[in-house]
Design a protein around this nucleic acid. Structure first.
Lengths: 262, 262
DNA sequence: AAGTGGTCTAGACCACTCT
DNA sequence: GAGTGGTCTAGACCACTTT
Protein backbone atom coordinates (compact mmCIF):
# COMPACT_ATOMS: atom_id res chain seq x y z
CA UNK A 1 0.00 0.00 0.00
CA UNK A 2 2.91 2.27 0.63
CA UNK A 3 3.91 1.99 -2.99
CA UNK A 4 1.03 2.62 -5.38
CA UNK A 5 3.17 1.75 -8.38
CA UNK A 6 1.23 -0.09 -11.06
CA UNK A 7 4.43 -1.33 -12.69
CA UNK A 8 2.23 -3.18 -15.13
CA UNK A 9 -0.25 -0.41 -15.95
CA UNK A 10 -2.87 -3.10 -16.36
CA UNK A 11 -4.02 -3.83 -19.84
CA UNK A 12 -7.47 -5.29 -19.68
CA UNK A 13 -7.10 -8.08 -17.18
CA UNK A 14 -4.47 -7.35 -14.55
CA UNK A 15 -2.18 -10.31 -14.08
CA UNK A 16 -1.78 -11.35 -10.44
CA UNK A 17 1.49 -10.18 -8.93
CA UNK A 18 2.50 -13.63 -7.80
CA UNK A 19 2.05 -15.00 -11.30
CA UNK A 20 4.11 -12.27 -12.84
CA UNK A 21 6.70 -12.85 -10.16
CA UNK A 22 6.82 -16.52 -11.01
CA UNK A 23 7.51 -15.68 -14.64
CA UNK A 24 10.33 -13.37 -13.68
CA UNK A 25 11.79 -15.93 -11.33
CA UNK A 26 11.61 -18.68 -13.96
CA UNK A 27 13.62 -16.54 -16.33
CA UNK A 28 16.09 -15.65 -13.64
CA UNK A 29 16.76 -19.14 -12.35
CA UNK A 30 16.86 -20.67 -15.82
CA UNK A 31 19.35 -18.05 -16.82
CA UNK A 32 21.57 -17.30 -13.88
CA UNK A 33 21.32 -20.21 -11.51
CA UNK A 34 22.22 -23.87 -11.66
CA UNK A 35 21.24 -26.97 -9.72
CA UNK A 36 21.91 -26.81 -6.02
CA UNK A 37 22.51 -23.10 -5.86
CA UNK A 38 20.68 -21.23 -3.12
CA UNK A 39 18.47 -18.24 -3.79
CA UNK A 40 18.48 -15.14 -1.60
CA UNK A 41 16.22 -15.59 1.40
CA UNK A 42 12.52 -14.88 1.18
CA UNK A 43 12.59 -11.61 3.09
CA UNK A 44 15.25 -10.22 0.84
CA UNK A 45 13.59 -11.42 -2.35
CA UNK A 46 10.30 -9.94 -1.24
CA UNK A 47 11.96 -6.60 -0.54
CA UNK A 48 13.82 -6.70 -3.83
CA UNK A 49 10.62 -7.21 -5.79
CA UNK A 50 8.64 -4.82 -3.64
CA UNK A 51 6.00 -7.30 -2.52
CA UNK A 52 4.92 -8.80 0.76
CA UNK A 53 6.59 -11.99 1.79
CA UNK A 54 3.33 -13.90 1.48
CA UNK A 55 3.06 -12.87 -2.14
CA UNK A 56 6.58 -13.93 -2.89
CA UNK A 57 5.89 -17.24 -1.21
CA UNK A 58 2.88 -17.75 -3.44
CA UNK A 59 5.20 -17.54 -6.43
CA UNK A 60 7.73 -19.88 -4.84
CA UNK A 61 4.93 -22.35 -4.07
CA UNK A 62 4.22 -22.58 -7.79
CA UNK A 63 7.85 -23.14 -8.66
CA UNK A 64 8.17 -25.80 -6.01
CA UNK A 65 5.09 -27.57 -7.37
CA UNK A 66 6.74 -27.57 -10.77
CA UNK A 67 9.82 -29.18 -9.30
CA UNK A 68 12.05 -26.23 -10.08
CA UNK A 69 12.81 -25.29 -6.49
CA UNK A 70 13.35 -27.09 -3.22
CA UNK A 71 12.85 -25.29 0.05
CA UNK A 72 14.53 -26.52 3.19
CA UNK A 73 13.82 -25.27 6.68
CA UNK A 74 16.70 -23.52 8.27
CA UNK A 75 18.69 -23.77 5.05
CA UNK A 76 17.15 -21.83 2.23
CA UNK A 77 15.61 -22.17 -1.20
CA UNK A 78 17.62 -24.02 -3.78
CA UNK A 79 17.42 -24.85 -7.44
CA UNK A 80 16.15 -28.39 -7.79
CA UNK A 81 17.78 -31.08 -9.86
CA UNK A 82 15.85 -32.11 -12.96
CA UNK A 83 13.27 -34.76 -12.31
CA UNK A 84 14.37 -38.36 -12.49
CA UNK A 85 12.66 -40.64 -14.97
CA UNK A 86 11.25 -43.59 -13.06
CA UNK A 87 10.15 -46.63 -15.06
CA UNK A 88 6.69 -47.84 -14.12
CA UNK A 89 5.28 -50.91 -15.72
CA UNK A 90 6.26 -54.25 -17.06
CA UNK A 91 9.68 -55.73 -16.54
CA UNK A 92 11.81 -56.01 -13.45
CA UNK A 93 10.57 -52.67 -12.15
CA UNK A 94 6.92 -53.41 -12.49
CA UNK A 95 6.52 -56.68 -10.73
CA UNK A 96 7.62 -57.15 -7.14
CA UNK A 97 10.71 -59.26 -7.18
CA UNK A 98 11.30 -60.92 -3.87
CA UNK A 99 15.01 -61.19 -4.58
CA UNK A 100 17.63 -58.54 -4.35
CA UNK A 101 16.10 -55.98 -6.61
CA UNK A 102 18.09 -52.90 -5.65
CA UNK A 103 15.07 -50.80 -6.42
CA UNK A 104 12.73 -51.74 -3.60
CA UNK A 105 13.19 -52.00 0.13
CA UNK A 106 10.57 -53.70 2.28
CA UNK A 107 9.54 -51.81 5.38
CA UNK A 108 6.98 -53.96 7.09
CA UNK A 109 4.15 -56.41 6.55
CA UNK A 110 0.87 -56.66 8.38
CA UNK A 111 -1.90 -59.19 8.00
CA UNK A 112 -5.37 -58.06 8.91
CA UNK A 113 -9.02 -58.38 7.90
CA UNK A 114 -9.87 -56.25 4.90
CA UNK A 115 -11.85 -53.08 5.42
CA UNK A 116 -15.07 -52.85 3.46
CA UNK A 117 -13.58 -50.60 0.84
CA UNK A 118 -10.36 -52.54 0.45
CA UNK A 119 -12.33 -55.77 0.13
CA UNK A 120 -14.37 -54.24 -2.64
CA UNK A 121 -11.28 -53.05 -4.44
CA UNK A 122 -9.80 -56.52 -4.26
CA UNK A 123 -13.02 -58.26 -5.13
CA UNK A 124 -13.08 -60.37 -1.99
CA UNK A 125 -15.54 -60.75 0.88
CA UNK A 126 -15.17 -58.08 3.55
CA UNK A 127 -13.23 -59.34 6.52
CA UNK A 128 -11.03 -61.76 4.62
CA UNK A 129 -7.41 -61.61 5.65
CA UNK A 130 -5.21 -59.38 3.54
CA UNK A 131 -1.45 -59.18 3.69
CA UNK A 132 -0.13 -55.69 3.21
CA UNK A 133 3.52 -55.19 2.40
CA UNK A 134 4.83 -51.65 2.70
CA UNK A 135 7.99 -50.86 0.88
CA UNK A 136 10.03 -48.03 -0.51
CA UNK A 137 11.27 -47.52 -4.00
CA UNK A 138 14.79 -46.22 -4.28
CA UNK A 139 16.33 -44.68 -7.36
CA UNK A 140 19.92 -43.56 -7.24
CA UNK A 141 19.81 -43.99 -3.50
CA UNK A 142 16.94 -41.55 -3.14
CA UNK A 143 13.51 -42.46 -1.83
CA UNK A 144 11.14 -41.97 -4.72
CA UNK A 145 7.98 -43.72 -3.64
CA UNK A 146 6.19 -45.55 -0.87
CA UNK A 147 3.96 -48.46 -1.75
CA UNK A 148 1.32 -50.52 -0.04
CA UNK A 149 0.90 -53.87 -1.73
CA UNK A 150 -2.32 -55.59 -0.72
CA UNK A 151 -2.56 -59.34 -1.28
CA UNK A 152 -5.63 -61.36 -0.28
CA UNK A 153 -4.73 -64.40 1.75
CA UNK A 154 -6.67 -66.52 -0.70
CA UNK A 155 -4.26 -65.56 -3.46
CA UNK A 156 -1.23 -66.85 -1.59
CA UNK A 157 -2.46 -69.95 0.25
CA UNK A 158 1.00 -71.43 0.55
CA UNK A 159 2.43 -68.84 2.89
CA UNK A 160 4.50 -70.43 5.64
CA UNK A 161 2.60 -70.44 8.90
CA UNK A 162 3.57 -67.52 11.09
CA UNK A 163 2.05 -66.33 14.34
CA UNK A 164 -0.51 -63.60 13.71
CA UNK A 165 1.14 -61.32 16.20
CA UNK A 166 4.39 -60.49 14.61
CA UNK A 167 7.45 -59.26 16.36
CA UNK A 168 9.25 -56.53 14.50
CA UNK A 169 12.06 -58.90 13.63
CA UNK A 170 9.84 -61.30 11.71
CA UNK A 171 8.14 -58.75 9.53
CA UNK A 172 10.89 -58.54 7.01
CA UNK A 173 10.76 -62.31 6.53
CA UNK A 174 7.04 -62.24 6.17
CA UNK A 175 7.22 -59.51 3.54
CA UNK A 176 9.70 -61.65 1.64
CA UNK A 177 7.41 -64.65 1.82
CA UNK A 178 4.46 -62.75 0.45
CA UNK A 179 6.47 -61.31 -2.41
CA UNK A 180 7.93 -64.73 -3.22
CA UNK A 181 4.52 -66.35 -3.31
CA UNK A 182 3.26 -63.63 -5.59
CA UNK A 183 6.16 -64.14 -7.95
CA UNK A 184 5.34 -67.83 -8.31
CA UNK A 185 1.81 -67.07 -9.41
CA UNK A 186 2.92 -65.42 -12.59
CA UNK A 187 1.14 -62.33 -13.78
CA UNK A 188 -1.24 -62.22 -16.70
CA UNK A 189 -1.92 -58.54 -16.79
CA UNK A 190 -1.62 -55.22 -15.09
CA UNK A 191 -3.98 -52.30 -15.05
CA UNK A 192 -2.85 -48.93 -13.81
CA UNK A 193 -4.09 -45.50 -12.99
CA UNK A 194 -2.27 -42.31 -12.11
CA UNK A 195 -3.71 -39.36 -10.26
CA UNK A 196 -2.63 -36.47 -8.11
CA UNK A 197 -2.84 -36.77 -4.35
CA UNK A 198 -1.26 -35.52 -1.16
CA UNK A 199 0.73 -37.54 1.33
CA UNK A 200 -0.72 -37.89 4.79
CA UNK A 201 1.23 -38.56 7.93
CA UNK A 202 2.31 -42.17 7.36
CA UNK A 203 3.29 -41.87 3.74
CA UNK A 204 4.85 -38.49 4.27
CA UNK A 205 7.12 -39.89 6.95
CA UNK A 206 8.26 -42.73 4.69
CA UNK A 207 8.95 -40.28 1.90
CA UNK A 208 10.81 -38.02 4.32
CA UNK A 209 8.53 -35.13 3.42
CA UNK A 210 6.05 -33.00 5.37
CA UNK A 211 2.38 -33.97 5.37
CA UNK A 212 0.49 -32.47 2.45
CA UNK A 213 3.30 -33.07 0.01
CA UNK A 214 1.83 -33.57 -3.46
CA UNK A 215 2.34 -37.05 -4.83
CA UNK A 216 1.51 -39.04 -7.91
CA UNK A 217 -0.66 -41.91 -6.80
CA UNK A 218 -0.21 -44.97 -8.96
CA UNK A 219 -2.76 -47.72 -8.45
CA UNK A 220 -1.92 -51.06 -10.01
CA UNK A 221 -4.12 -54.12 -10.26
CA UNK A 222 -2.20 -57.35 -10.81
CA UNK A 223 -4.03 -60.29 -12.32
CA UNK A 224 -3.07 -63.95 -12.54
CA UNK A 225 -5.21 -66.48 -14.38
CA UNK A 226 -7.87 -63.90 -14.92
CA UNK A 227 -8.14 -63.21 -11.22
CA UNK A 228 -7.14 -60.10 -9.28
CA UNK A 229 -4.30 -61.23 -7.03
CA UNK A 230 -2.85 -58.00 -5.76
CA UNK A 231 -3.49 -54.28 -5.53
CA UNK A 232 -0.58 -51.90 -5.23
CA UNK A 233 -0.99 -48.28 -4.23
CA UNK A 234 2.23 -46.39 -4.81
CA UNK A 235 2.76 -42.75 -3.98
CA UNK A 236 5.57 -41.16 -5.95
CA UNK A 237 7.15 -37.85 -5.02
CA UNK A 238 5.87 -35.49 -7.67
CA UNK A 239 8.68 -33.03 -7.09
CA UNK A 240 11.47 -35.42 -8.03
CA UNK A 241 9.81 -38.04 -10.23
CA UNK A 242 8.77 -38.29 -13.82
CA UNK A 243 6.97 -41.56 -14.36
CA UNK A 244 7.85 -43.37 -17.57
CA UNK A 245 5.79 -46.03 -19.31
CA UNK A 246 6.05 -48.22 -22.30
CA UNK A 247 8.93 -49.51 -24.34
CA UNK A 248 11.60 -48.57 -21.83
CA UNK A 249 12.93 -45.49 -23.48
CA UNK A 250 12.52 -45.73 -27.23
CA UNK A 251 14.42 -42.49 -27.41
CA UNK A 252 16.19 -40.75 -24.58
CA UNK A 253 14.60 -38.44 -22.11
CA UNK A 254 12.62 -35.58 -23.53
CA UNK A 255 12.83 -32.06 -22.15
CA UNK A 256 9.29 -30.94 -22.02
CA UNK A 257 9.34 -27.22 -21.46
CA UNK A 258 10.23 -26.02 -24.91
CA UNK A 259 7.72 -28.31 -26.50
CA UNK A 260 4.97 -26.93 -24.31
CA UNK A 261 5.70 -23.28 -24.79
CA UNK A 262 6.85 -23.37 -28.38
CA UNK B 1 -4.71 -14.71 18.75
CA UNK B 2 -7.83 -13.71 20.58
CA UNK B 3 -8.44 -17.30 21.48
CA UNK B 4 -5.39 -18.98 23.02
CA UNK B 5 -7.08 -22.37 22.99
CA UNK B 6 -4.63 -25.18 22.31
CA UNK B 7 -7.45 -27.56 21.36
CA UNK B 8 -4.80 -30.09 20.58
CA UNK B 9 -2.58 -29.70 23.64
CA UNK B 10 0.42 -30.50 21.51
CA UNK B 11 2.01 -33.85 22.00
CA UNK B 12 5.60 -33.60 20.91
CA UNK B 13 5.31 -32.07 17.48
CA UNK B 14 2.40 -29.66 17.19
CA UNK B 15 0.39 -30.37 14.06
CA UNK B 16 -0.18 -27.29 11.91
CA UNK B 17 -3.66 -25.88 12.27
CA UNK B 18 -4.38 -25.99 8.58
CA UNK B 19 -3.51 -29.65 8.44
CA UNK B 20 -5.74 -30.49 11.35
CA UNK B 21 -8.46 -28.42 9.72
CA UNK B 22 -8.09 -30.39 6.54
CA UNK B 23 -8.58 -33.63 8.44
CA UNK B 24 -11.71 -32.31 10.10
CA UNK B 25 -13.07 -31.06 6.80
CA UNK B 26 -12.37 -34.37 5.08
CA UNK B 27 -14.40 -36.17 7.68
CA UNK B 28 -17.18 -33.62 7.47
CA UNK B 29 -17.55 -33.58 3.71
CA UNK B 30 -17.20 -37.33 3.38
CA UNK B 31 -19.88 -37.75 5.98
CA UNK B 32 -22.40 -34.97 5.56
CA UNK B 33 -22.03 -33.63 2.05
CA UNK B 34 -22.48 -35.01 -1.41
CA UNK B 35 -21.33 -34.04 -4.89
CA UNK B 36 -22.33 -30.56 -5.98
CA UNK B 37 -23.33 -29.33 -2.57
CA UNK B 38 -21.93 -25.95 -1.55
CA UNK B 39 -20.02 -25.41 1.66
CA UNK B 40 -20.55 -22.39 3.89
CA UNK B 41 -18.51 -19.45 2.66
CA UNK B 42 -14.91 -19.00 3.69
CA UNK B 43 -15.50 -16.20 6.15
CA UNK B 44 -18.09 -18.18 7.99
CA UNK B 45 -16.06 -21.37 8.02
CA UNK B 46 -13.04 -19.51 9.33
CA UNK B 47 -15.12 -18.00 12.10
CA UNK B 48 -16.69 -21.33 12.93
CA UNK B 49 -13.30 -22.98 13.34
CA UNK B 50 -11.78 -19.99 15.06
CA UNK B 51 -9.00 -19.40 12.55
CA UNK B 52 -8.02 -16.66 10.17
CA UNK B 53 -9.41 -16.86 6.70
CA UNK B 54 -5.94 -17.40 5.26
CA UNK B 55 -5.48 -20.46 7.42
CA UNK B 56 -8.80 -21.89 6.38
CA UNK B 57 -7.88 -21.27 2.77
CA UNK B 58 -4.66 -23.21 3.24
CA UNK B 59 -6.75 -26.21 4.23
CA UNK B 60 -9.11 -25.72 1.30
CA UNK B 61 -6.12 -25.47 -1.05
CA UNK B 62 -5.12 -28.96 -0.02
CA UNK B 63 -8.57 -30.36 -0.55
CA UNK B 64 -8.81 -28.72 -3.94
CA UNK B 65 -5.46 -30.22 -4.95
CA UNK B 66 -6.82 -33.61 -3.97
CA UNK B 67 -9.81 -33.08 -6.20
CA UNK B 68 -12.28 -33.13 -3.33
CA UNK B 69 -13.43 -29.53 -3.67
CA UNK B 70 -14.02 -27.08 -6.48
CA UNK B 71 -13.99 -23.36 -5.80
CA UNK B 72 -15.78 -20.99 -8.10
CA UNK B 73 -15.51 -17.24 -8.01
CA UNK B 74 -18.68 -15.53 -7.11
CA UNK B 75 -20.37 -18.85 -6.44
CA UNK B 76 -18.81 -20.72 -3.57
CA UNK B 77 -16.96 -23.88 -2.65
CA UNK B 78 -18.55 -27.13 -3.74
CA UNK B 79 -17.98 -30.80 -3.31
CA UNK B 80 -16.28 -32.09 -6.44
CA UNK B 81 -17.46 -35.05 -8.43
CA UNK B 82 -15.19 -38.09 -8.29
CA UNK B 83 -12.38 -38.00 -10.79
CA UNK B 84 -13.07 -39.41 -14.21
CA UNK B 85 -10.93 -42.29 -15.43
CA UNK B 86 -9.36 -41.24 -18.72
CA UNK B 87 -7.78 -43.95 -20.86
CA UNK B 88 -4.30 -43.07 -22.03
CA UNK B 89 -2.45 -45.37 -24.33
CA UNK B 90 -2.97 -47.76 -27.16
CA UNK B 91 -6.23 -48.12 -28.95
CA UNK B 92 -8.55 -45.53 -30.36
CA UNK B 93 -7.78 -43.11 -27.54
CA UNK B 94 -4.04 -43.24 -27.84
CA UNK B 95 -3.45 -42.59 -31.48
CA UNK B 96 -4.75 -39.46 -33.13
CA UNK B 97 -7.61 -40.49 -35.32
CA UNK B 98 -8.30 -37.96 -37.99
CA UNK B 99 -11.88 -39.11 -38.29
CA UNK B 100 -14.79 -38.35 -36.08
CA UNK B 101 -13.40 -39.57 -32.80
CA UNK B 102 -15.76 -37.88 -30.37
CA UNK B 103 -12.90 -37.65 -27.93
CA UNK B 104 -10.71 -35.02 -29.55
CA UNK B 105 -11.43 -31.63 -31.03
CA UNK B 106 -8.82 -29.85 -33.12
CA UNK B 107 -8.25 -26.22 -32.25
CA UNK B 108 -5.62 -25.01 -34.65
CA UNK B 109 -2.53 -25.98 -36.57
CA UNK B 110 0.63 -23.96 -37.13
CA UNK B 111 3.67 -24.81 -39.21
CA UNK B 112 6.92 -23.22 -38.15
CA UNK B 113 10.65 -23.87 -37.85
CA UNK B 114 11.52 -25.96 -34.81
CA UNK B 115 13.09 -24.25 -31.83
CA UNK B 116 16.42 -25.69 -30.74
CA UNK B 117 14.89 -27.61 -27.88
CA UNK B 118 11.95 -28.93 -29.84
CA UNK B 119 14.26 -30.03 -32.62
CA UNK B 120 16.33 -31.96 -30.14
CA UNK B 121 13.28 -33.61 -28.67
CA UNK B 122 12.19 -34.68 -32.13
CA UNK B 123 15.65 -35.72 -33.26
CA UNK B 124 15.67 -33.39 -36.25
CA UNK B 125 17.91 -30.52 -37.31
CA UNK B 126 17.03 -27.22 -35.70
CA UNK B 127 15.01 -25.01 -37.98
CA UNK B 128 13.26 -27.82 -39.83
CA UNK B 129 9.56 -27.18 -40.29
CA UNK B 130 7.33 -28.73 -37.69
CA UNK B 131 3.56 -28.93 -37.84
CA UNK B 132 1.92 -28.43 -34.48
CA UNK B 133 -1.68 -29.43 -34.03
CA UNK B 134 -3.39 -28.19 -30.90
CA UNK B 135 -6.47 -30.02 -29.79
CA UNK B 136 -8.68 -30.66 -26.82
CA UNK B 137 -9.68 -33.93 -25.32
CA UNK B 138 -13.30 -34.17 -24.28
CA UNK B 139 -14.74 -36.77 -21.95
CA UNK B 140 -18.43 -36.70 -21.22
CA UNK B 141 -18.56 -33.29 -22.81
CA UNK B 142 -16.02 -31.88 -20.40
CA UNK B 143 -12.62 -30.55 -21.42
CA UNK B 144 -10.09 -32.86 -19.83
CA UNK B 145 -6.86 -32.04 -21.60
CA UNK B 146 -5.10 -29.80 -24.07
CA UNK B 147 -2.53 -31.29 -26.38
CA UNK B 148 0.19 -30.04 -28.68
CA UNK B 149 1.10 -32.63 -31.27
CA UNK B 150 4.39 -31.87 -32.96
CA UNK B 151 5.08 -33.54 -36.31
CA UNK B 152 8.25 -32.92 -38.30
CA UNK B 153 7.52 -32.04 -41.89
CA UNK B 154 9.86 -34.81 -42.96
CA UNK B 155 7.59 -37.37 -41.36
CA UNK B 156 4.57 -36.31 -43.39
CA UNK B 157 5.97 -35.40 -46.83
CA UNK B 158 2.68 -35.95 -48.58
CA UNK B 159 0.80 -33.11 -46.98
CA UNK B 160 -1.31 -31.25 -49.53
CA UNK B 161 0.30 -27.95 -50.42
CA UNK B 162 -1.14 -25.10 -48.45
CA UNK B 163 -0.05 -21.47 -48.26
CA UNK B 164 2.26 -20.93 -45.32
CA UNK B 165 0.16 -18.06 -44.11
CA UNK B 166 -3.01 -19.66 -43.06
CA UNK B 167 -6.29 -17.96 -42.65
CA UNK B 168 -8.20 -19.06 -39.60
CA UNK B 169 -10.67 -20.92 -41.77
CA UNK B 170 -8.10 -23.24 -43.27
CA UNK B 171 -6.48 -24.33 -40.02
CA UNK B 172 -9.03 -26.93 -39.23
CA UNK B 173 -8.47 -28.54 -42.62
CA UNK B 174 -4.75 -28.46 -42.17
CA UNK B 175 -5.00 -30.12 -38.76
CA UNK B 176 -7.08 -32.85 -40.36
CA UNK B 177 -4.50 -33.35 -43.08
CA UNK B 178 -1.66 -33.74 -40.61
CA UNK B 179 -3.58 -36.21 -38.49
CA UNK B 180 -4.60 -38.20 -41.56
CA UNK B 181 -1.05 -38.42 -42.82
CA UNK B 182 0.09 -39.59 -39.42
CA UNK B 183 -2.53 -42.28 -39.36
CA UNK B 184 -1.31 -43.70 -42.66
CA UNK B 185 2.19 -44.12 -41.34
CA UNK B 186 1.17 -46.74 -38.81
CA UNK B 187 2.71 -46.68 -35.38
CA UNK B 188 5.32 -49.13 -34.14
CA UNK B 189 5.59 -47.97 -30.60
CA UNK B 190 4.80 -45.38 -28.03
CA UNK B 191 6.83 -44.17 -25.11
CA UNK B 192 5.25 -42.07 -22.40
CA UNK B 193 6.04 -40.10 -19.34
CA UNK B 194 3.81 -38.46 -16.75
CA UNK B 195 4.78 -35.65 -14.44
CA UNK B 196 3.23 -32.83 -12.48
CA UNK B 197 3.16 -29.35 -13.97
CA UNK B 198 1.21 -26.13 -13.94
CA UNK B 199 -0.73 -24.64 -16.80
CA UNK B 200 0.48 -21.32 -18.13
CA UNK B 201 -1.64 -18.79 -19.92
CA UNK B 202 -2.26 -20.58 -23.21
CA UNK B 203 -2.99 -24.01 -21.85
CA UNK B 204 -4.93 -22.61 -18.96
CA UNK B 205 -7.25 -20.78 -21.31
CA UNK B 206 -7.88 -23.90 -23.36
CA UNK B 207 -8.63 -25.85 -20.20
CA UNK B 208 -10.90 -23.07 -18.99
CA UNK B 209 -8.89 -22.75 -15.80
CA UNK B 210 -6.81 -19.98 -14.25
CA UNK B 211 -3.06 -19.89 -14.86
CA UNK B 212 -1.13 -21.96 -12.35
CA UNK B 213 -3.67 -24.75 -12.35
CA UNK B 214 -1.89 -28.02 -11.59
CA UNK B 215 -1.90 -30.46 -14.49
CA UNK B 216 -0.63 -33.90 -15.31
CA UNK B 217 1.76 -33.51 -18.21
CA UNK B 218 1.81 -36.56 -20.45
CA UNK B 219 4.60 -36.65 -23.01
CA UNK B 220 4.25 -39.26 -25.73
CA UNK B 221 6.76 -40.22 -28.38
CA UNK B 222 5.26 -41.95 -31.40
CA UNK B 223 7.51 -44.10 -33.54
CA UNK B 224 6.97 -45.54 -37.01
CA UNK B 225 9.48 -47.84 -38.65
CA UNK B 226 11.91 -47.26 -35.80
CA UNK B 227 11.81 -43.52 -36.31
CA UNK B 228 10.32 -40.84 -34.11
CA UNK B 229 7.45 -39.37 -36.11
CA UNK B 230 5.57 -37.33 -33.57
CA UNK B 231 5.78 -35.87 -30.10
CA UNK B 232 2.63 -35.16 -28.15
CA UNK B 233 2.57 -33.04 -25.02
CA UNK B 234 -0.79 -33.36 -23.31
CA UNK B 235 -1.76 -31.50 -20.18
CA UNK B 236 -4.57 -33.16 -18.27
CA UNK B 237 -6.56 -31.42 -15.55
CA UNK B 238 -5.32 -33.04 -12.38
CA UNK B 239 -8.44 -32.04 -10.45
CA UNK B 240 -10.87 -33.97 -12.62
CA UNK B 241 -8.76 -36.69 -14.27
CA UNK B 242 -7.43 -40.04 -13.27
CA UNK B 243 -5.25 -41.37 -16.05
CA UNK B 244 -5.66 -45.05 -16.78
CA UNK B 245 -3.20 -47.29 -18.57
CA UNK B 246 -2.99 -50.83 -19.73
CA UNK B 247 -5.52 -53.49 -20.50
CA UNK B 248 -8.48 -51.13 -20.63
CA UNK B 249 -10.02 -51.83 -17.31
CA UNK B 250 -9.31 -55.40 -16.29
CA UNK B 251 -11.52 -54.74 -13.32
CA UNK B 252 -13.73 -51.75 -12.74
CA UNK B 253 -12.62 -48.52 -11.20
CA UNK B 254 -10.84 -48.74 -7.89
CA UNK B 255 -11.53 -46.39 -5.02
CA UNK B 256 -8.14 -45.54 -3.71
CA UNK B 257 -8.63 -43.86 -0.39
CA UNK B 258 -9.37 -46.84 1.80
CA UNK B 259 -6.50 -48.78 0.33
CA UNK B 260 -4.09 -45.99 1.13
CA UNK B 261 -5.15 -45.39 4.68
CA UNK B 262 -5.97 -48.96 5.65
C1' DA C 1 22.65 -16.76 18.73
C1' DA C 2 21.66 -15.89 14.11
C1' DG C 3 19.45 -17.03 9.97
C1' DT C 4 16.21 -19.65 7.35
C1' DG C 5 11.65 -21.29 5.82
C1' DG C 6 6.78 -22.52 7.96
C1' DT C 7 2.64 -20.95 10.14
C1' DC C 8 -0.81 -17.63 11.48
C1' DT C 9 -3.28 -13.31 12.01
C1' DA C 10 -6.54 -9.27 10.96
C1' DG C 11 -7.68 -6.59 7.77
C1' DA C 12 -8.15 -4.55 3.04
C1' DC C 13 -9.47 -4.40 -1.71
C1' DC C 14 -10.55 -6.62 -6.23
C1' DA C 15 -13.06 -9.63 -9.77
C1' DC C 16 -16.72 -12.30 -10.58
C1' DT C 17 -21.71 -14.07 -10.33
C1' DC C 18 -26.32 -13.65 -9.36
C1' DT C 19 -30.50 -11.19 -8.14
C1' DG D 1 -25.90 -4.27 -4.76
C1' DA D 2 -24.88 -8.21 -2.15
C1' DG D 3 -22.25 -12.22 -1.76
C1' DT D 4 -18.52 -15.10 -3.10
C1' DG D 5 -13.70 -16.54 -3.81
C1' DG D 6 -8.89 -14.37 -5.26
C1' DT D 7 -5.13 -11.37 -4.14
C1' DC D 8 -2.22 -8.67 -1.16
C1' DT D 9 -0.29 -6.55 2.95
C1' DA D 10 2.56 -5.91 7.38
C1' DG D 11 3.67 -7.98 11.04
C1' DA D 12 4.28 -11.72 14.51
C1' DC D 13 5.93 -16.02 16.27
C1' DC D 14 7.61 -20.84 15.67
C1' DA D 15 10.72 -24.84 14.20
C1' DC D 16 14.72 -26.02 12.26
C1' DT D 17 19.75 -25.73 10.94
C1' DT D 18 24.12 -23.95 11.38
C1' DT D 19 27.80 -21.27 13.65
Amino acid sequence: MAVPVPATPASTVPEPKYWHLRTVLVRTIDGEFSTGQVLPNERELAARFGVARATLRQALDQLELEGRLVRRRGIGTLIAAPRVGVPVGRGDEGWPSAGRSPSWRSVDCVSAPASAQLAQSLGIPAGETVHTVRRLRLVQGQIMAAESLHVPDSAVPHLPAVPQLIGGAGESDRARSVLRQLERLGVDGESRSVELGVAEAGEAALLERPPGTPVLVVTTQYAAAGRLVALAVSTYRSDTCKLTFGETGLVEVTPVEAARTA
